[in-house]
Amino acid sequence: MEQAFFFYFACVIAATSVLVVALRNPIYSTLALLVMFFHVAGLYVTLHAEFLAAVQIIVYAGAILVLYLFVVMLLNLKQDVRYHRQWPMAAAVGATLVIEAIILTAMKGSTTPAVATDAETAIGGAGNTAAIGDVLYTTYLFPFEVASLILLVAMIGAIVLAKKDVGEREA
């Protein structure tokens, strides 16, 4: 049953990911990306990571992708503007991924699979939300704070860039 769900999610993720770059209409690409985000969230649910699944949809599908759609609609991109000769780059990235896949397949069996034990999946009877919060504020406190600092810098940077002309006008 879980295997069936995994293969369904994996197949749809692979198919929609290809569609995102292959479709000619940027709006359809964005929608393919939306479908992909949902199936990634589904994958998280099969891993008992419900909190991550919800956050995935809220942040990526609910906020970031809406902004993408917003921009795509406002710019109303011409189809030919969008396509440059990008196949050398695509070939380089693709080759790297294929090599990685071959290495991973070849190494299969030599390492023990990191299957989550029952104790690990059942961290805190209250579900994994509490567990994530606990770990985030103890073990990973420093990376967490650094990440929030980077976000703050990015936010201030965006405001400075957007507000550039205001200062000049006043001067």
């Binding site: 699944a53 919800a54 599908a61 609910g62 809406v66 609609m73 209250a126 579900g127």
Partner: peptide, 19 residues
């Protein structure tokens, strides 16, 4: 166990239909 997050996720998807 993530009921309220589920509602937030659903609400954020609502914009797509309108856009």
């Amino acid at each position: 166990n993530i009921g309220i997050l589920y509602i937030l996720a659903i609400a954020s998807i609502g914009a797509y239909g309108i856009i």
